[in-house]
Design a protein around this nucleic acid. Structure first.
Length: 426
RNA sequence: GGAGAGGUGGCCGAGUGGUUGAAGGCGCGCCCCUGCUAAGGGCGUAUAGGUUAACUCUUAUCGAGGGUUCGAAUCCCUCCCUCUCCGCCA
């Protein structure tokens, strides 16, 4: 959520900045509503003031034992007039809120222009894609061969875009989770957290999934209105919702392993094969809650923390900066980390690291007490995947495959695989 | 699931219809006194808006949302949450 004050004082500037994100902010409509709101609010409040004053007089008169009948007559029609104004004001305020809730965050000046991922800019690469002396298979072929990855059974159990993992593949998946958590908690200073995998609407609003992206979420069909989390970002960031934390509590750094549930609305026909795009996948998420002046550096650090995982696994990757059109609703700046996937002969997103500035904090009312001012001020939120586990599994299987269909276990993972250096599918 | 109690400011805690945005305490900030690692005293200390050049003035907020009333932290209704006991349960 943007600062309403800024939107009021310089709507044209904001509209101009939002163009980079492909958002058309209707300044005329907004300003017209604002005019109405202002007039109505002044009217309403002066009526409220009148009511308060007269009510106080009635109280005083009553206490003094005077006749209050004439005073009551005075306020007779005040109530109805006031109620009418209040309803009108509520409607206008509601309309303004709807607009405000739908306005995306303003992109950082470093964000390149562009409509879609074609305009994303590569900022660095690491490692060299391996050249195979045999025909490299993709993870589907590797995994299905002997049942390590079983998509058909998952279709029976649930439906498309799910997978059943078995044997060494399931173990490798688990090993990746443990490995990532260990690196982040012991080497990067994150605190491990385990959080609810369902959230209420307030939390989903706080991080920006609601109200605009309800279709991307799985909503539980029960009158409590819970949602399955699309990422641990939602519950973890909301730890500080409606809180005022002391300055020395910041930065807070959390690492969280969780399943992620996405309806993938609008992605029909994309990545339908394999486990690139699933309705359920697991992820180790990194979240940092920081003072405003720390967020830019925290974002760089966090991205690096995610990269370290790929470096330790010796998987080639590149980092791209997302252009305006590809940038998410709540983010001001996002780096995507893309891992080399031999089966597709391309880089695929495995992590998305974003700085949200105060955008999520304002929605959540997450604040810290600034000792310099003594006042509560909004914090900044930063997060990123460290990493998406399913996609990391794909990358390991495909990059480490051998001609005989076995897969070499990356050195860093061997302690988590009982020392095994190679796996065969079941 | 059943029975009961309760949700008030950064924290604790008064307050059952009329200057209560809210006593008192703690914490915090500034100052004074004391001159020694103690204590005492004074003042200040919620949030979000509107209005104003500013001072001022003003509105809302006592879990959330409705209602009654000239007037609601206080009365009524619905919901959420916490605690205690019982039941159930991985």
């Amino acid at each position: 959520m943007l600062d309403l004050k800024r939107l009021r004082t310089e709507p044209e500037t904001v509209a101009e900045l939002l163009k980079k994100k492909g958002h058309d902010f209707d300044v005329a409509a907004f300003s017209a509503l604002e005019e109405k709101r202002k007039a109505l609010q002044v009217d309403t409040e002066s009526l409220q003031n009148e009511r308060n004053t007269k009510s106080r007089n009635i109280g005083n008169a009553k206490a003094a034992g005077e006749d209050i009948a004439p005073l009551l007559a005075e306020v007779d029609d005040l109530k109805a007039t006031l109620q009418k104004k209040e309803v009108e004001l509520d409607v206008i305020v509601g309309e303004l809120e709807t607009i405000l809730h739908g306005v995306p965050n303003i992109p950082d000046e470093r964000v390149p222009e562009g409509a879609d991922e074609e305009s994303n800019q590569e900022i660095r690469t690491w490692g060299k894609p391996r050249s195979f002396d045999f025909e490299a298979k993709d993870h589907i072929e590797l995994g299905e061969a002997r049942g390590g990855l079983d998509f058909e059974t998952a279709v029976k159990i649930t439906g498309s875009r799910f997978v059943v993992m078995q044997g060494e593949v399931a173990k490798l998946h688990r090993a990746l989770v443990q490995f990532m958590l260990d690196v982040h908690t012991t080497e990067h200073g994150y605190t491990e957290v385990n959080v609810p995998n369902m959230v209420n609407a307030e939390s989903a609003f706080g991080t920006g999934q609601l109200p605009k992206f309800a279709d991307d979420l799985f909503e539980l069909k029960d009158d409590r209105g819970f949602y399955l989390i699309p990422t641990a970002e939602v519950p973890v960031t909301n730890i500080v919702r409606d809180e005022i934390v002391e300055a020395d509590a910041l930065p807070m750094k959390f690492a969280c392993h969780s399943p992620c549930f996405r309806s993938e609305a609008g992605s029909y026909g994309k990545d339908t094969r394999g486990m690139i795009r699933q309705h359920q996948f697991e992820k180790v998420e990194l979240v940092q809650l920081v003072k405003p002046e720390q967020s830019k550096q925290a974002h760089e650090d966090l991205t690096h923390h995610a990269e370290v995982i790929l470096q330790k696994l010796e998987l080639p990757y590149r980092v791209v900066i997302l252009c305006g059109g590809d940038l998410g609703f709540s983010a001001e700046l996002t780096y995507d980390i893309e891992v080399w996937v031999p089966g597709q002969d391309t880089f695929r997103e495995i992590s998305s690291c974003s700085n949200f500035g105060d955008f999520q904090a304002r929605r959540m009312q997450a604040r810290w007490r600034n000792p310099n001012t003594g006042k509560p001020e909004l914090i900044h939120t930063v997060n990123g995947s460290g990493l998406a586990v399913g996609r990391t599994l794909i990358a390991v299987l495909e990059n480490y495959q051998n001609a005989d269909g076995s897969v070499t276990v990356p050195l860093a993972l061997q302690p988590y695989m009982g020392g095994a250096s190679t796996i065969l599918f079941p």
